[in-house]
Amino acid sequence: MIEIIKNRLKQGYRTSNFPNEKPELPERFRGRPALNQDLCASGCADCLSACPTQALTKSPDPEGKTLSLDMGRCLFCGECAKSCPDGAIVFTRDHRLAANKREDLLIQSQEVKLAASLKEEMRRLFGRSLKLRQVSAGGCSACEAELTALNNVVFDLGRFGIQFVASPRHADGLVITGPVTKHMKEALQLAYQAVPEPKIVIAVGACALSGGPFMDSTEQLGGANAIVPVDLYIPGCPPHPLTILDGLLRLLGRLEDKMETVK
C-alpha cells in the first residue's frame, strides 16, 4: 500500500488541459494538410504519383484550384509534400481534421470545413453523456490503440462524459475502424441494428473512411459508409488521440472555438 501511495505522489497529475490549452505537437507531426494552388504552377504531377492511396487529384478548373487532397484517403505519410518541387503542399501541426460529410474532407486550400455539432435534439440527448461501442472491422490495431489511449489518464475521455461500453444495446453509437472486411460486414450490420435509435456512427482512420492502404483489395468494402450512414469522419493513419477527441467534442458542440472553417 505504501508503495502505491509513494508512486501516486511521484506520478503527479498527468491529465492534459485539452481543450483549454492548445496542444503542443512536435515539429515533425503531420496534421492537417494545406494546399497552396498559387505555388502549384509548374504543372507537374509528382505528388499524384507519390501518393500511395491516390488521395491527390488534379483537374483543370477555371478558378485555378486544380489540386485536391482527399483527407479520407490520406495516410499522412508526407510523400506528396516531399515530392513537390514548389512547396505547394505542406502538413501543418494542426490536429483538427474531423468532418461531418465525406466531401468535406476534400481540401483545395489552407481551409477545411470542420465538423459541426449535432442537431439540438441529439445534442440534448448525447451532449453530456455519450456511450459508444467500438467495432473493429479490419483495423490493423493502430486506430484501436489510439481509441484505447483516449481512456488513459492523459486524455481521460471520461471527464467529457464519453465512454466506451461493452454492448451495442448500451450504446448511443458506433465507432468503426478498418476498411470493413467482407467477413465483418454481417457482424457490423448486426451491431448497428442493435444500437437503439437515435444513434450516431463515427468512422475513424483512413481505412474506415475509404479503405485506406487496402482500397485496392477485393476482400474489403471500402470503408464504413458502404454499410452504415456515418455522422463523423476522423481522418488519419491512425488519427492522433487529440484528433479523435477534437472530432467527438465538435460533434457534441462542446468546443469553445465554434468556427467551422479554419485557416
Partner: peptide, 27 residues
Amino acid sequence: YQHRGAEALLQKPNRFSLSIAESICGD
C-alpha cells in the same frame, strides 16, 4: 474476420507496398 487481402496486395508489384506492410499489424 480481419482478412483484408494484405498478402495479395503485397504479391502485386507495387511501389506503395510499404504502406501496406506498415498496416499488416498496426502495433
